[in-house]
Nucleic acid binder design. Sequence first.
DNA 1: TACAGAAAAATTGGATTCAATATTCAATTC
DNA 2: GAATTGAATATTGAATCCAATTTTTCTGTA
Lengths: 223, 223
Amino acid sequence: MTLHRVTTTGRVVDLLREQILSGALPEATLLRQEKLAAEFGVSRVPIREALHQLEAEGLVTMQSHKGAVVSSLSIDDLEEVYEIRARLETWLLEQSMPLLSEPHFQKAEALFAQMVEDRRDENWSNLNWDFHATLYEPANRPQTLALVRKLYLNAYRHFPLPIRLTGSREKMNREHQVLLDLCRQGDVARASAHLEQHILMGARHLISRLKALRRQEADTGRA
Amino acid sequence: MTLHRVTTTGRVVDLLREQILSGALPEATLLRQEKLAAEFGVSRVPIREALHQLEAEGLVTMQSHKGAVVSSLSIDDLEEVYEIRARLETWLLEQSMPLLSEPHFQKAEALFAQMVEDRRDENWSNLNWDFHATLYEPANRPQTLALVRKLYLNAYRHFPLPIRLTGSREKMNREHQVLLDLCRQGDVARASAHLEQHILMGARHLISRLKALRRQEADTGRA
DNA sequence: TACAGAAAAATTGGATTCAATATTCAATTC
DNA sequence: GAATTGAATATTGAATCCAATTTTTCTGTA
């Protein structure tokens, strides 16, 4: 177990990524190197290296001599990412279900209970991911899991947390409960279909909330 | 139409990526900043920024104060990447097939003819990708297409070109021909199944060649 | 000879400095 | 008065310089 590199660049990358994925730095935010350098108390060099790295991850876009901005996903892109997730996650579930055993169910149920109980929005994303990942874990597909996780985080960002949860929490809980039941019953076909619906409905909800938000912004802008 | 940024870092990224994906820089190659800087006639700063970017793309791995190496895919990882491709590309094909029209067929046939004719190995990868992409294009899934392309290139590298083509060219051509025919006939189910086999067989071939190569290297190393 | 430890060299990471490009804003022209 | 040019300012891109870390080499000892 190697205790990873602790370079300034690495820390800046982690910090910025966290702030972008959490929504603290919303899309289209201009990232000034000097400002970030002052904020973190370092020179501009590690800032720029971090920005290049985040650009490769798709989280920011850089234009030479102009600056870096937090990149945004169009609604179409967002929908497509969810569809990719649906395609890959159902596949993971189909592979893992025959291998799911009691410890997995118990872990998933514990995470589910936490999600129902913990009302703090900021914990929801991680719990939700851990819940899903637990069900996929026996498939033993590390590359796929890592890829899906990246898509998950990338799609979930940009939205102030309360917004993306409003009015969907109870629904999500019910769907997770059904998914768990179907997994326990070993009904692969229905579990997979349910998961697909779960993901695509999530996308629909998010997109409708996003559109409402944009309409609202346009209205206040006009007023 | 913006004439893109021409920064030193950007050019270095493109050059290194090209060399890695083409196999000119094989896996596990140590990338010395000073050496690369001298080679490209620039300072170490843009080299380092480029390495960070390529690390985020997964093409190199960096260890602090030790150096950067061209990252390698294990055989298991390689196989998994091919399976992801199979899962996503069949999906793309299923969506695009109902929308395929004559211009697409003609473009695909032209690319196919070029692949049959052009014996130069170094053109094969790009032609092959263009052929596949042509069939997926009507699906209008830019994110998925970009993702699959990345997986395609990433998996195909590391192998000296002649090695990965030896003994598979004729087979590939036959399979492409069948795929084209099935697409023209509009038989979605069979085309999709054939494409899946095509991709998975490609993986099997590549892996067996790779294992043979490693055995051979071990033998000569022992001798 | 084999090994441990310290000095030296090599290499990377980060700060500072300089150069190139973009933006801002005032002066000028129509 | 509006548009345009150009100087001043701000910001990024890259080179050089210094610090921190790792690797190698050398030396002394068992």
